[in-house]
């Protein structure tokens, strides 16, 4: 565990706490893509099924349990308690265009031909594009609550921090994970546009608004 990865994980943890805070404070799930949140549940369940078969560390196990349970809780908040504040009519990204290609990629690229390993690959590919429905929604509405942009920034920072972590691991341990690294670079690249607006507007105290 190096500092890049540790702060990356902390940023991921923070993003979920910010998300829960946003829902609680505004008593609304407005501006959040249910599709993106449902994709994250799929990602975590597919990847962390190994929590029952592999033991890495207490930290690893606790984080896995947290990510699975918190993402399921967010889905419940969106479809249960705060359902009236959810607007599916602006959440129109076609997730089948993500699920199909990711399943195909996982069948082609994996480390071992076993159910859990192919599922692991699938989850890595799916995570890299899971934010697209949310970014698409942002693009469509052209604006976002500041707290929602902090959530996205923390999530993007988590991905960005994993990149120096991999460089460090390659240098210090001489190991590389081509599937995770390739998908991770793609995932981080998807945030570049968002980060540009976040740094030039939100962090200067302005509202997150895209040019018409």
């Amino acid at each position: 565990m190096n500092l890049f990865r540790f702060f990356g994980d902390m940023s991921h943890l923070a993003s979920i706490l910010i998300l829960l805070y946003k829902i609680h404070a505004t008593r609304s799930v407005r501006g959040l893509s249910f599709k993106t949140q449902a994709l994250y549940v799929t990602v975590f369940v597919a990847r962390y099924l190994d929590v029952f078969t592999e033991f890495v560390s207490v930290y690893n196990t606790l984080m896995k349990i947290f990510f699975i349970s918190s993402s399921c809780f967010v889905l419940y908040l969106m479809k249960g308690r705060y359902r009236p504040t959810n607007d599916p009519s602006i959440d129109t990204f076609r997730v089948e265009y993500l699920l199909g290609p990711c399943a195909l990629l996982a069948l082609i690229f994996h480390y071992r031909w076993s159910f859990l390993e192919v599922l692991w690959s699938f989850s890595i590919f799916l995570e890299s594009v899971a934010i697209l429905p949310q970014l698409f929604m942002l693009q469509r509405t052209g604006e976002a609550e500041t707290i929602t942009t902090h959530y996205l920034a923390a999530l993007g920072a988590y991905r960005a921090l994993y990149i120096p972590n991999w460089i460090y691991r390659y240098w210090s341990e001489d190991v590389i994970d081509p599937i995770a690294v390739t998908a991770g670079i793609v995932q981080t690249a998807l945030y570049l546009d968002f980060f540009y607006v976040y740094f030039t507007k939100v962090l200067q105290g302005q509202k997150f608004e895209l040019p018409a």
Binding site: D50, V56, M63, K64, R169, D177, P178
Partner: peptide, 10 residues
């Protein structure tokens, strides 16, 4: 090892 990738990551 390399074969399994970084399975210790989240």
């Amino acid at each position: 090892g390399t074969e399994d990738g970084h399975k210790d990551e989240l």
